[in-house]
Amino acid sequence: MKKRMNYVIILTMGIALNWALFSSSIAQTEPLGPLMSVTEFTIKPGHEMQFREGIKAWKACYLENKGDWTWRMWQRQQGEGSVFVLASDMANWAEMDKTDESSKKCQDLARTLINPHIEKATSHVTRFQLGMSKGSALTEDIIRVSFYDLNPINGHRLMEVVKEVEGIRKSAGLEPGGYWYQWQTGGPESPSFHHVMPYKDYAAMDIIQEGVWQTVEKNAGKAKRDELQAAFRSSLQNTWNYIYTLDKDISRPSK
């Protein structure tokens, strides 16, 4: 998210980010996709409005100072507490070396109008997985995010299965419906991968579509479906998901 995040919220809160890189056990067969820097904010009870107003004030200051950073702020719709997720694309790790003079001019607003309303902030970096993800950019305002914590023994099978399943779907004329990300940093409770499924609105969730395993069975047979489904399940230690909506007032998806 570039060093600007240090000036916006992270540094001004005095949070030490100890991002430990982990090596992937999955062979890299695709070109490296871009990175995404993500910060999850848990807001103090009853402080959601003040937090949003603080972000609005910071955003206005940043735009006035001709800042070029872009970001999306998502609000989690389920789970405990009020949670917002700030996501920003990075072409590579080198962007972390850059500083943002525009954000420096607005850091006092972050310190006084945003930070007092935050109970906790957790940051991590993920990498977009090319080949098995949707080719077009995300434009929808609602996403369902599924998180995958890998089994220490069979976890390497997850992406093998995903690649094979997407190959079967592609042969059936179907393109990937969502976006896969591999976590590059994280703590003991962090997942290893997550998948983002976009929707234009909540009504789109009511549309019944052919399931992934139905497609596999239809095009590759029941035996292959059972084989891949078993491998997929054995690769996971835990999985969970949430729905997020884009808060447009405190986002800047494009310049």
Score class of each variant (00 low, 15 high):
K170D: 09
K170G: 14
K170F: 04
S171F: 06
S171Y: 12
A172E: 05
A172K: 06
A172L: 07
G173E: 04
G173F: 02
G173P: 06
G173R: 04
L174E: 11
L174H: 09
L174R: 11
E175H: 00
E175C: 00
E175V: 01
E175T: 06
E175P: 00
P176D: 12
P176W: 04
P176K: 08
P176N: 13
P176G: 14
G177Q: 09
G177T: 05
G177E: 08
G178D: 01
G178C: 04
G178K: 00
Y179W: 13
Y179I: 09
Y179A: 09
Y179T: 10
W180L: 02
Y181H: 13
Y181M: 09
Q182P: 14
W183A: 11
W183E: 11
Q184I: 13
T185P: 07
T185E: 05
T185Q: 08
G186A: 06
G186D: 10
G187R: 11
G187V: 05
G187Q: 14
P188F: 05
P188I: 02
P188N: 03
P188G: 06
E189D: 15
E189W: 13
E189P: 02
S190P: 15
S190W: 12
S190K: 14
S190N: 15
P191A: 00
P191I: 00
S192V: 06
S192E: 11
S192N: 15
S192C: 07
S192P: 10
F193P: 02
F193G: 01
F193M: 02
F193L: 03
H194K: 07
H194V: 03
H194D: 14
H194A: 06
H195M: 02
H195V: 01
H195G: 03
H195E: 10
V196I: 14
V196D: 04
V196M: 10
M197G: 04
M197S: 11
M197P: 03
M197R: 11
M197E: 12
P198I: 04
P198W: 02
P198E: 03
Y199H: 08
Y199A: 09
Y199L: 10
K200G: 11
K200Y: 06
K200T: 13
K200E: 12
D201Q: 10
Y202F: 15
